[in-house]
Design a protein around this nucleic acid. Structure first.
Lengths: 204, 204
DNA sequence: CAATATTAACCGAACGATCGGTTCATAACA
DNA sequence: TGTTATGAACCGATCGTTCGGTTAATATTG
């Protein structure tokens, strides 16, 4: 009926509320998740849940904000701005997979957004900036002669990022494939050839 | 107020209703789309819409059914069962991209399903069978010596399919990239190397 | 062929349930 | 004692769905 004693349970912090929310969003999807579901997952009532966040949309903003912040931080890392563009692409791709494994719920919230509301539109716009940064690196890598692809740079960028991001829909920590292996696997899929290219040369 | 004259407009067929529904689902998402939205898109009232389909869930079933039927038909094609496994994988992957471009709304409905309801669970189970078929081909290709990958077959299968399927979220017919180019691009991403592998050999 | 009966295709209105969100009282903390 | 954190009760809106009624098309009958 009122506040819970600190000796029983510490009061929620906002980031804990967001943790719970994005976790349920990951499993059930954003739209299919009601505020009542989230409150139940937190073990409090809906009205108590609203004490910590002002709206469902705010939870979305906080969630995707985490994902977008993590993505753009990668672009500022030293390995993302120094050296040949091919190496920078490899680094960003590897770090992206790491983020997907570590912040899976938040990334899922981002990549599943349809742009139905202004808030979603803003998130998609920021994501588009990330894609553009990747495309620019691909173009630079081609200019440097370090990358030879048979498609437009934007398409290569989209497919590579798509493969990396698709991981959010099935990866489970502690599952049969480790996060480290996953990073290597995505890089290998994009940069290595699984067939003998000397026999049927794709990049002559 | 009642039935529309045939001279004005032909009555809807069920598949036309499904066409409309999956189209709106693609843009707004299944959960975010109300039956009223669908009726408005069809130009009839909500209750009239219910004359053609019994429930929203039935629309989902009919939609994902289309996608799953198309996928499993690919597995029965001659090029999917004859010849070296590498070639069969290439063919299935290319045909998958074709289906993604041609039946984009239906595929989107399938890959976005979270398994929240029994109907969704059934759809995901069928999809899993398709993934398994792909994995088996990868294993066979490795055994034949036609495929050399640095990861588990199931992982390679998931990433390749993930890259192909990720296309549903951005491809638009008549856009900057044609469906044919897209098919080639996905195959190239998976089977070609964009870097000089003789310098830094990944498959020694 | 004209009258009649039946079915197909639609609409307006309303249903119960659930949605996101609010108000207010109350107990614990500082 | 004022602030913080909670629960009970509740609100209007919207959801998927249903129902009663209406008209166009079609099949049957005389």
């Amino acid at each position: 009926m009122a506040r819970i004693s600190n000796s029983v349970r510490q009061p929620f912090r906002v980031d804990e509320i967001v943790d719970i929310a994005v976790g349920v969003f990951l499993e059930r999807g954003y739209d299919a998740t009601s505020m009542g579901d989230l409150a139940k997952a937190a073990g409090i009532t809906k009205s108590s849940f609203y004490y910590h966040v002002s709206s469902k949309e705010e939870l979305f903003e906080l969630g995707v904000g985490r994902a977008l912040d993590a993505l753009f931080l990668v672009l500022k890392e030293h390995e993302s701005v120094a050296g040949p563009a091919v190496g920078r692409i490899r680094h960003v791709l590897r770090r992206l997979v790491e983020i997907v494994t570590r912040q899976r719920p938040e990334v899922a919230l981002l990549v599943r957004a349809r742009g139905n509301t202004p808030v979603e539109k803003r998130a998609l716009a920021r994501r588009k900036q990330f894609d553009l940064a990747m495309t620019l690196m691909v173009e630079q890598a081609i200019a440097e002669g370090g990358l030879r692809i048979r498609m437009e740079p934007a398409l290569f960028s989209r497919l590579a990022l798509g493969a990396a991001v698709s991981v959010v829909e099935w990866y489970r920590p502690g599952g049969s494939v480790s996060a480290r292996d996953l990073v290597d696997a995505v890089e290998s899929l994009v940069f290595d050839s699984p067939v003998d290219e000397t026999a049927a040369p794709a990049n002559p």
